[in-house]
């Protein structure tokens, strides 16, 4: 299994360079995106680009293409992370109910005495 099953050097090398070009292009897009499109939701646009880049890396550089078992495992782990995000961010924090009485948000409303220690004594 560990042996050399006919490497098509030129062909695989060409794939590497093509992917590199794609990644460089996406990196360039990263920089002009705020001035170009989706300026109101930079966060979303940036993460979208990152996902595409990650996809390219995983499929071609990490040779995940055609790996059924490992692919399924990767997807399972990613889904798990996604679920953590949905529950913690989507369900819990986005319904944060303690703003007024909280120590951990900005002391604008109430409780200034608690959180902002005076700079001068």
């Amino acid at each position: 299994m560990g042996t050399n099953t006919s490497v098509n050097y030129q062909e695989e090398k060409a794939v590497y360079y093509k992917v590199l070009a794609g990644l460089l292009l996406l990196t360039a897009i990263t920089f002009i995106q705020p001035h170009l499109f989706m300026a109101q939701s930079t966060f979303l646009a940036q993460m979208l680009i990152a996902v595409i880049k990650a996809w390219l890396i995983v499929i071609y550089y990490m040779h995940l293409k055609g790996e059924k078992l490992i692919g399924a495992m990767v997807i399972f782990a990613l889904l798990l992370v996604l679920v953590f995000f949905v529950i913690v961010i989507g369900v819990d924090v986005s319904h944060f109910q303690f703003k007024g009485e909280s120590y951990i948000t900005e002391p604008i409303t109430t409780g200034a005495a608690h959180s902002a220690t005076p700079a001068h004594h």
Binding site: I87, V91, D92, V93, S94, H95, F96, Q97, F98
Partner: peptide, 10 residues
């Protein structure tokens, strides 16, 4: 501990 009510229910 101080979670959102909806999170507790879920």
């Amino acid at each position: 501990s101080g979670m959102a009510d909806i999170a507790k229910t879920v």
